[in-house]
Design a protein around this nucleic acid. Sequence first.
DNA 1: GTGAAAGCGCTAACAC
DNA 2: GTGTTAGCGCTTTCAC
Lengths: 350, 350
Amino acid sequence: MKVSQSKSKATINDVAELAGVSIKTVSRVVNNEPNVRESTREKIESAIARLNYRPNLSARNLASQRSHLIGLLYDDPATYELPSAGYIIELQEGVLNACKLVKYDLLIHPCNYRDENLDEELTSMIEQRRPLGIILAAPLSNMPGIVKTIEDTGTPLVRLSPGERCADKLTVATNDQEICAEMTRYLASLGHRRIAFITGHQGHKAVGKRFEGYRDGLINTGLNFSEQLVVEGDNSFGSGRHAARQLLKNSNPPTAIFAANDDMAVGVLLVAAQLGLKVPEDLSVAGFDDIALARQVSPALTTIRQPLVRMAEHATQMLIRENTSGDEIQNYEIIPGKLQIRESTGPVPG
Amino acid sequence: MKVSQSKSKATINDVAELAGVSIKTVSRVVNNEPNVRESTREKIESAIARLNYRPNLSARNLASQRSHLIGLLYDDPATYELPSAGYIIELQEGVLNACKLVKYDLLIHPCNYRDENLDEELTSMIEQRRPLGIILAAPLSNMPGIVKTIEDTGTPLVRLSPGERCADKLTVATNDQEICAEMTRYLASLGHRRIAFITGHQGHKAVGKRFEGYRDGLINTGLNFSEQLVVEGDNSFGSGRHAARQLLKNSNPPTAIFAANDDMAVGVLLVAAQLGLKVPEDLSVAGFDDIALARQVSPALTTIRQPLVRMAEHATQMLIRENTSGDEIQNYEIIPGKLQIRESTGPVPG
DNA sequence: GTGAAAGCGCTAACAC
DNA sequence: GTGTTAGCGCTTTCAC
């Protein structure tokens, strides 16, 4: 009997024939359905192994009306600065981890929210590929137009860090505000009284929460909030440098600078070095994200670890559960960040 | 007449009915095939617009026996250090650029070459999804086992930077060796006589070519090659720091250090700063890749820009052409890198 | 426990 | 130029 056909094309019919059963029974085995006699199952499994059979996913998708695809949407790093490469890779890693367990695949779709045809582009991608769910990364997740476009297709959607809670929407976020309050309290505990903050990109609501957390932290420790100690940034390295120069040329400069993300914090580190300030002896610096660079600069950056991989994993699992079990699922999940105290923060000078 | 059906489900039959033609004619219009009267085409197009029809890709794939998917395989950054996030994002960007034009989608598949089941995993992914082609990034592209596994499935394959030419395999690479010779000559032209080199990761053949280029450059300019000026690295930031310390503690240290990638070069920069050496006054430093960080460090890093996005674009186009036109295609393409002279290199001291 | 038959929505040959 | 007829390889009733 000819077993290894020239080019990998055994179908369910071949398996059924070789095993001497109907294709329906093969289908039951392949999909782990119940009601198959053990001996039949074994026969089929050995036929599958012998023929090297692998179900054709297009056929399966067509018949079952469900692709085994998860869509991941994020702002295109090529058109803009915002999502750093590391951020996106971690997102992808998390989704892929969760997909692997259930044999789903990941369809990535970087997009540009300034693009006029984005609605059409997204609708078209969703209706054609019919992913079983969409994961929408920040800051797209806080743009109502995009959220609505996706919801209108009827595809389940999980928002990542949208910066606000919404009862009827699946959401995964981290505790930006609380953890930033904690970092601020930590800086205060080192004796710092003039703690500056560099804000993040305007369009990014979750990053906005970090600023609120900074204010909470000041209040917690009885420090006064001063607008003089707040400079606007846009999450970019350059804006961090700019903000640092502005803060440090002050007659009464801060002794600690807390930036809303690591890229800006590294910018601060650089400016401090240029101005001859020693970190942390003369100035403490803290960031947010814990990008790879945070551990590579010298002194290593004190920052907050955002559990992106786990957030993306969790979001994917929400989608999978939404599709398989009809169980009630928690539709709002906070995965807490964690302080990473390294070398860039220390006791207040003098 | 009910036009906007509740849930986005117009099929080719609905369009045919509304336009008063057969489904075959609709198919012709959708696929831009010839032999359709202009008036018919218009009727169909308006029906498509009215019904908001979008072809179901699973059905199309099943019937036509070709998915519209490109597979991108690279070493999983989560399990190892080698491919940096920036590297992968650029690869993805290039593939996506090319895909967009022809409405293909990208399936990413990070994998671990140390994984025992990798062969099975890849074969299974390829046979199930049936991507129309695979792009294999370095260093996977120089691993014969992986290349063979993919070739055995019969799927067209393009290797990216495999470090060697092979007549019967589609390949896209950059001119690692030549451009590194050029960088070395540039350093020599600044008066440097003791130019050190930090080699890259062993398993990465294309990176090995960079070392050969360094030697070529020395020969071109009449300088002697000395083993004392070569230190082994592994592409990581840490290995760059380590190598720099080793080179600079020397009694007769180099005046220029050329690292096989930017991560290591940035490590050198850091060690130089710690040792109180001014760059480029006391020491020149050069890297390879032109990662984002190269522009963000101070002094900005002189390096070589590897045209990853264009390489990935080109690889994708090779695959598309292989599938559509039966034209002869160039099966080996070199996309040259380019020197980026910045602030970290200067005339030899003294 | 198992199977027969009818699609899923499209493309491909070939007839007209 | 256009339509008819078969599938592609699977899942899904529903009957046995």
